[in-house]
Design a protein around this nucleic acid. Structure first.
Length: 481
RNA sequence: GGCGCCAUGGUCAAGCGGUUAAGACAUCACCCUUUCACGGUGGUAUCACGGGUUCGAUUCCCGUUGGCGUCACCA
């Protein structure tokens, strides 16, 4: 049988990073076996509709490169792929009624008031459990209520004794007492199905073979199994994924800063890097590889190696990885992405490509660029004069002043300001003064940049800003001291 | 609170009865160097605890502790 997986988000308006990983794993499971990956929209809660949410889902998947084979936008043989549209055809109600006939579900007319009486408060948390009140309604009573137009829901009828077992490919067999199984609502009073019901019906109707989802569904999975059994349907393989958390082991939330795919994109992280990183949060390949593109992931992916325990998202490593991606980029692609950031701060007529190349191995995200290169455009006024003291080179401030004074006429005499030539000439000059290259270059670099750390050496900077500016900056430095 | 799941360094993790307990990020030291970064070498640091089972447990079983999830007409 062909492997078919699905990503089934509800349109909430953003792509949580855990969701993205779920989508990725579902995609990889399918593609590793040349199967189908489908997109289904679970919009059965009309109160939570968010405008533009659908576009965010499409755009995120596209950006991540997770192209679906069937979905609302491209159609497919088992559509429609939006649950609110499926509702219109009446399928959920139809299947719910089948369940009622089988005695596996029943009408419930309880109102909110009665329901609220069933609630208990445990440690400040509201907990409810339905008491099967409406299960005992006679056929006549039900008919009368229905005829009267009384609002109703349809509930699953779960046994109160015995146990139910389901199997997850990662977690193995999990058995729970049926007394734990609440009679959950299948069809809401507005006629829409709940997630609990719709996902079972649709996964079956769409021939899904592997159900991939977060492990917050682990505790309701037995109830889903009872639904499959009641219908006589084959139960798909379950793969419940562990959560991704923040440093304090809480679920990543919006306030954490970067909980969603778009948050991370906005931070300047590359989509392919985010995908790569997130794949490794809860899964690892057989080999020691850890930087790979989507195609390589498809090759390597074995879902049996997905971990069962939660993973903390480490921003530091994510950024490190992004730096690796930038480093490994072709120069053409790199320049295309870097240049806009360079142009933001460099207004003078310098070689912007050269400047961009200076920072290629020194940035983690593109937005790091401006702060690293702004000195090319202009030296910060009141920089710290103590920078002219450098212990490692045994350099005092007076040494620096002397070097700058000595080197000024030398530079004035050089016309070829290419890096190679400058370096050669200055090295030669240093030799005559018995100055080590490091010691000689230090004050020059400080004078040209006003910074302790720069993305380029003294002569590289000089070659970029040119002779005139180099000499000007050294004179300014001397005046400043 | 009931039920369920989970538990290897600060973090991601490999391991699936016998290992000097991989690798990566972070961290520290040194090397390289025209500063920083990159790169290189090396170091510090992990099997939550207590019982079993076994000739032998990080690995299997039970318990404890801790964390997380769930208990909606949300998904």
């Amino acid at each position: 049988m062909k492997v078919r997986t699905r990503f089934a988000p509800s349109p909430t308006g953003y792509m949580h990073i855990g969701n993205l990983r779920t989508a990725l794993y579902a995609y990889l499971i399918a593609k590793h076996e040349n199967g189908d990956f489908l997109l289904r929209i679970e919009d059965t809660d009309k109160n939570r509709e968010v405008e533009g949410a659908l576009d965010i889902i499409y755009n995120s998947l596209k950006l991540a490169g997770l192209m679906h084979d069937e979905g609302p936008d491209i159609g497919g043989p088992v559509g429609p792929y939006i649950q609110s549209e499926r509702v219109k055809s009446g399928i959920y109600m139809e299947y719910a009624k089948k369940l009622i006939e089988k005695g596996q579900a029943y009408y419930c007319f309880c109102d909110e008031e009665r329901l609220s009486k069933l609630k208990k408060n445990v440690n400040g948390e509201e907990i409810s459990f339905y008491d099967k009140h409406c299960l005992s309604l006679s056929k006549d009573e039900i008919e009368a209520n229905l005829k009267e137009g009384k609002p109703f829901v349809i509930r699953q009828n779960n046994p109160t004794e015995g146990t139910t077992t389901f199997n997850d490919d990662l977690y193995g067999d999990i058995t729970v007492d049926n007394s734990e199984l609440d009679d959950m609502v299948l069809i809401k009073s507005d006629g829409y199905p709940t997630y609990n019901f719709a996902n079972v019906v649709d996964d079956h109707l769409m021939n899904i073979t592997h159900v991939v989802r977060g492990n917050e569904y682990l505790s309701s999975a037995p109830k889903y199994n009872r639904l499959y059994d009641a219908f006589g349907w084959d139960i798909p393989k379950y793969i419940h994924c562990p959560p991704i958390t923040d440093e304090s082991h809480h679920k990543l939330s919006k306030r954490h800063g970067a909980a969603s795919f778009e948050d991370m994109i906005n931070l300047g992280l590359l989509p392919e890097c985010i995908l790569n990183f997130v794949a490794l949060l809860g899964w690892s390949p057989d080999s020691n590889e850890e930087i790979f593109d989507l195609n390589r992931m498809i090759e390597l992916f074995d879902y049996h190696r997905i971990s069962k325990s939660p993973a903390v998202l480490d921003m530091t490593k994510l950024k490190w990885m992004n730096g690796k991606y930038i480093e490994n980029m072709s120069n053409d692609k790199y320049l295309e992405m870097a240049l806009p950031y360079v142009e933001k701060v460099i207004t003078k007529n310098y070689d912007k490509e050269k400047i961009a190349m200076c920072v290629k191995t020194r940035i983690e995200v593109f937005p790091d660029i401006p702060s690293k290169i702004s000195f090319f455009n202009e030296v910060e006024k009141n920089y710290d004069k103590n920078l002219y003291v450098n212990e490692k080179n045994k350099l005092s401030k007076d040494d620096s002043i002397a070097i700058l004074n000595d080197v000024l006429p030398v530079l004035e005499g050089i016309n070829d300001f290419s890096n190679d030539n400058l370096f050669a000439e200055l090295k030669e000059f240093g030799k005559s003064k018995e100055l080590k290259v490091g010691k000689l270059m230090w004050p020059i670099r400080i004078a040209l940049s006003g910074l302790e750390n720069t993305p380029a050496g003294a002569t590289e900077i000089a070659s970029i800003i040119g002779k005139e500016e180099t000499i000007l900056r050294i004179k300014n430095a001397l005046n400043y001291m």
